[in-house]
Simulated scan of single mutants.
Amino acid sequence: MNAHRTLIRRTALVAGTGVAALVLAACGGDSEHDMGAMGESRSTPSASASITAGDHNAADVSFAKDMIQHHRQAVEMAELAETRAASAETKDLATKIKGAQDPEIKTMSGWLTSWGEEVPADMSGQGHDMSSGMPGMMSMADMDKLKAAKGAEFDKMFAEMMIKHHEGAIEMAKTEKAQGKYDPAKKLADEVIKAQTAEIEQMNKMLGKS
């Protein structure tokens, strides 16, 4: 009888030990998973902040703010071509310029917001003279002349003004590449230089200059 009781006690002890081990293993697994999740939750904000805020400097902020305004004027000029240009080539080029620069405006606006900077108010089409402070910008008088032109006269004026405008954008982009710190901004600056240099060559051909 004593032997039988001893056997029962040993069986119960082993069973209890097994259950305890299972519980501990389960808890340990949950604890490890929770710690991992906590680690992820802790790392996510900093990673997110790194992605949004980025490693930028004052040159990047100036580039984004100025280029947004610069692009807005180019888009305004391109939109005039829809109803005023005579040649299909001028209309196609204007559509290409607008299609490229509209998304870039949105991209740069997103950078400024993530950096805690204000996105410049849109002054295009409102009679404000934005020619000061940025290379290649058209004055109010320039824009009024372009708006008044039609047909072949518009095509010529558009190409001449857009060449000057593009040259200013390229100058700004080169400054960003030399002084900026934010890699996406420097990459965009490089794209601006390549695309707008090619468009200048195209417009010079349209004007019979090359």
Score class of each variant (00 low, 15 high):
H70R: 13
R10F: 12
A37C: 07
P120W: 06
E76P: 02
G208W: 06
F158Q: 01
Y182C: 02
M203V: 12
S124P: 00
E104C: 07
D30I: 11
W115H: 03
P45G: 11
E118T: 14
T90A: 15
H165T: 03
M134N: 01
M38T: 12
H4S: 13
L22R: 09
T11I: 13
G151S: 10
G151R: 05
E160L: 01
S41M: 13
K106P: 07
A141K: 07
D144I: 07
M1T: 10
L112P: 06
H4C: 04
D102G: 10
P135N: 09
G125D: 02
E117W: 02
M206Q: 12
K164P: 04
Q202M: 14
I51R: 11
K98A: 15
A94V: 09
M138C: 04
A178Q: 05
A198W: 13
G18I: 12
E79M: 10
M77E: 12
A121H: 01
V19Q: 09
D155M: 01
A21S: 14
S48P: 05
E79A: 11
E117K: 12
T90S: 06
H128D: 11
A81W: 00
H71T: 07
L93I: 07
M137P: 03
S114A: 15
D144V: 06
K91D: 02
S124T: 13
D190M: 10
K106Y: 09
G54M: 06
F154P: 01
M140I: 11
A100P: 04
A49K: 12
D102T: 15
R10C: 09
K174V: 11
A15D: 11
T17I: 14
L24H: 11
E89W: 05
A159S: 10
H71S: 09
R84L: 04
S114N: 13
P135K: 11
M38W: 10
G180L: 03
H71P: 13
H166N: 08
D66K: 14
A59I: 01
K177I: 13
E153V: 08
H33G: 03
T90L: 10
G151I: 11
E118M: 08
A169V: 09
K181H: 08
H165P: 02
A59S: 10
K147N: 08
A59R: 00
E199P: 07
G39P: 01
